[in-house]
Amino acid sequence: MENKLIQFITHKILRQPDAVLDLNTPLLSGGVIDSFSLIDLSFFIENEFGVHLEDTELNAETFDTLAELVALIRAKTA
C-alpha cells in the first residue's frame, strides 16, 4: 500500500518519478500535495483500496504523513 501511494504521488501529483518520499514526509504541510490535488488522492484511494475518505477528512489534522494516511486507510478497511 505504501509503495502504491508513493508511486501515485510521485508520478501523478508531483510528476517527478525520481522524487523520494518516506513514511514521515509531511505531505500536506510540506507542500507535496496541494489542495487542488487532494481529490485526486482520495479518488485514487477509493479506486485502489476501496476506502472512501470524506471531504472533511482531507486535511493535515486527519493525516499529514504517509504513515498517518496508511493508518487511516487500514482503520477504515478493518
Binding site: Q16, G30, G31
Partner: peptide
C-alpha cells in the same frame, strides 16, 4: 547525481509552499 537533485528540489518545493502557499508543479 539524483540524490542531490532530489534533495534540492524537495527543499525548493517546501520553501516556496511555506513561504507563499503556492505548490510548484515542476522544479
Amino acid at each position: 547525481d539524483p540524490a542531490v537533485r532530489q534533495k534540492i528540489s524537495a527543499e525548493i518545493r517546501q520553501n516556496v509552499m511555506h513561504g507563499s502557499a503556492v505548490a510548484l508543479r515542476q522544479v
